[in-house]
């Protein structure tokens, strides 16, 4: 049984490999990508440094000391450099150019194909973005090693972050089918996610009513929970424990995946590709 199952995976693996190779062609982006993230972290680092300095050396804000908050921000951005994919605009481009017809011809599940592409991009990003970025950010900002159970909780939640982010990407990609210019929608989604996922600031730093609502949304599973696990805060300071977080994340993943299946068949039914 086993070889057969693997053989069924082979065409999907090929998509992952091709995406990886395609991205290797643009090397200049490593440098600019790392610079961008260093600027993001740096900008906040200076402001938080001033705020903590006013409160004294031992100060904690929201249960986090300055070094922990720095770690939260840096690890959040490093993780984002890996789970972030451009699949939304890629799907949208295929819709607009009509190439999506080719996807329909293949005896493969398009949603599976997209996931494989995202895995390829994520593998590339882990190796060529996240790793060098960690090499730069960790010494520069004094990032701490994972605390408490973070060493196993973080990778697990990172995997869920990647999957949930991917489902959101697919949803946005299909939604672009109904628009002309996709850059605005993808940019809107990206900016909204940065705040709602807790990338810019830990969610519990936001006003209480907002934080209380945001932890129940799928976005928290992308940025907030994995990094909070990394700094060892899950189950401490009134934060939910790992079981609860896993339950929320898995629930959202299932819901989003099912939603995307419906959304995709809806778009497919409306799809009209002109020949030529």
């Amino acid at each position: 049984m086993r070889p057969l199952a693997l053989a069924g995976l082979a065409p999907y693996l090929r998509f992952a490999r091709v995406t990886l190779l395609k991205l290797m062609a643009y090397r200049m982006r490593f440098v600019t990508g790392i610079a961008t993230y260093a600027i993001f972290v740096g900008g906040q680092w200076f402001i938080w440094k001033a705020i903590y300095a006013q409160r004294g050396a031992e100060a904690e804000i929201g249960g986090l000391a300055f070094a922990q908050l720095t770690t939260y921000l840096a690890v959040g951005y490093i993780a984002r450099s890996a789970y972030f994919t451009n699949l939304d605009s890629e799907i949208a481009t295929r819709f607009q150019s009509g190439d999506v017809a080719l996807d329909l011809l293949k005896p493969l599940d398009p949603l599976g194909q997209w996931l494989a592409q995202a895995v390829g991009e994520c593998a590339f990003r882990l190796l060529f973005f996240a790793l060098p970025m960690a090499c730069v950010l960790v010494p520069v900002f004094g990032v701490l090693p994972p605390a408490g159970d973070g060493w196993w909780q973080f990778p697990l939640l990172f995997l869920l972050a990647f999957l949930i982010n991917h489902e959101l990407n697919v949803a946005a990609g299909i939604a672009c089918f109904f628009l002309e210019d996709i850059t605005a929608l993808t940019s809107l989604k990206r900016n909204l996610l940065m705040l709602l996922s807790g990338l810019l600031v830990p969610l519990h730093f936001l006003p209480e009513w907002l934080a209380a609502a945001l932890v129940w949304l799928p976005f928290a599973a992308i940025g907030y929970w994995p990094v909070l696990a990394y700094v060892g805060e899950l189950g401490a300071h009134g934060h939910p424990d790992i079981v609860m977080v896993l339950a929320i994340s898995l629930g959202w993943l299932a819901l989003l995946h099912f939603g995307n299946r419906c959304f995709w068949s809806l778009a497919r039914a409306r799809l009209e590709v002109q020949g030529g």
Binding site: Y26, M28, T32, T36, F40, G42, G43
Partner: peptide, 20 residues
């Protein structure tokens, strides 16, 4: 330098520093 994105994203984000 013919690259698709070039130096734009880091420069753009640098503007954030100008706000504080």
């Amino acid at each position: 330098f013919d690259d698709r994105v070039g130096m734009m994203p880091p420069v753009y984000n640098l503007m954030e520093f100008g706000r504080w």
